[in-house]
Amino acid sequence: MPTTVLVAGFRGSMGQKATAMIKRDPELELAAVYSPHLETTDPAAYELPATTQVFNQLSAMDTRAQVWVDFSTPAGAFENARFALEHGMTPIIGTSGLSDDQVAQLTQLAKEQHQVGLLVPNFGLSAVLLMQFAKQAAQYFPDAEIIEMHHADKKDSPSGTAVNTAKMIAAGRKQAPETVENPVETIPGARGANYDDVPIHAVRLPGYVAHEQVLFGGPGEALTIRQDSFDRESFMHGLNIAIKQVNRLTGFAVGLENVL
């Protein structure tokens, strides 16, 4: 039997790619979609199969979906994930912007519900590898900065990928980075955001999709690691793996590498 999937945020750029991928795969079934801003719940209005349920309210939701894929908004993703866990669905969250406290709450809820779930900062395999390589490099180059570049309509800054990269750099360090005494910003914010002594610079421009580079500096040398996602279709392979492998987890996890 195919795995039944609900896609929240199905009308967005990633949501549309996700629904198309699910419909193409005979091992998956698009059981339902959800968006709180819909005027009609007729699947024909969205060119969806007649068997796909369409919901615009969580309170009205009664679905046979096993997996909840979330590409909604930072404001809605946390409550969506809570709802999924409380109603027997496995959440796979592709929406960034969740706080550490919210992730901790979802981790605890999954434990209480004897459920599993997955928060994925980036479904691109190149991005997953970049984060792994950055963690390794941080052992030898503790001084690092991140530049992340995304499309102009991305709401949150910095990206979830950049924050997760910073976490992995911090975890990989064996010594503290050098600190500048009394740094001066002639324009506030010039040095970017700071996560665990990793400066993060966010770029939002038309024409970009998702790109990240990590710059490491050491005495007399430097290392740059970069990944580029030129099309959102590149994320679908990782999403497909996540849907099919998420039940291998034993709780709530962060990062696609947990199911690779």
Rank of each mutant, 00 (worst) to 15 (best):
F55P: 02
Q57E: 12
Q57K: 14
Q57R: 15
Q57N: 12
A60D: 14
A60T: 13
A60I: 07
A60V: 05
T63K: 06
T63M: 05
R64P: 08
R64T: 13
Q66G: 11
V67T: 05
V67W: 02
W68K: 02
W68D: 02
F71S: 01
S72D: 00
S72W: 00
T73N: 00
T73D: 01
P74V: 12
P74Q: 02
A75L: 09
G76L: 10
A77C: 09
F78C: 00
N80K: 04
N80L: 15
A81V: 02
R82C: 13
R82F: 05
F83A: 02
F83K: 01
A84I: 02
L85S: 02
L85W: 05
E86R: 13
H87G: 00
G88K: 01
G88E: 03
T90W: 08
T90N: 03
I92W: 03
G94T: 07
S96R: 02
S96K: 15
S96G: 13
L98H: 06
L98A: 08
S99Q: 11
D101A: 13
D101S: 10
D101C: 03
D101G: 09
V103D: 08
A104E: 11
A104G: 08
Q105I: 11
T107N: 09
T107L: 08
T107M: 07
T107C: 07
Q108G: 06
Q108K: 14
Q108R: 13
L109I: 06
K111L: 10
K111Y: 09
K111Q: 13
E112M: 06
E112Y: 04
Q113W: 09
H114I: 04
H114N: 15
H114S: 12
Q115R: 14
Q115V: 06
V116T: 10
G117M: 04
G117L: 05
L118F: 09
L118A: 05
L119W: 07
F123L: 14
G124V: 04
L125V: 15
S126C: 11
S126N: 11
S126D: 14
A127H: 12
A127D: 03
A127L: 08
V128Y: 04
V128R: 10
V128N: 07
L130S: 04
F133K: 12
F133P: 00
F133Y: 10
A134W: 04
A134P: 06
A134C: 14
A134D: 02
K135N: 10
K135T: 06
A137V: 14
A137P: 02
A137E: 07
A138D: 05
A138F: 05
A138R: 05
Y140K: 07
F141K: 04
P142W: 11
D143F: 09
A144S: 09
E145H: 12
I147H: 11
I147K: 11
E148D: 15
H150T: 15
H150D: 05
H151N: 12
H151C: 09
H151R: 14
A152G: 05
A152K: 11
D153Q: 12
D153I: 11
D153H: 11
K154P: 00
K154Y: 13
K155G: 04
D156L: 13
D156S: 14
S157G: 10
S157M: 08
S157Q: 08
S159H: 01
G160F: 00
G160V: 02
V163Y: 01
T165H: 00
A166R: 03
A166T: 06
A166M: 09
K167L: 13
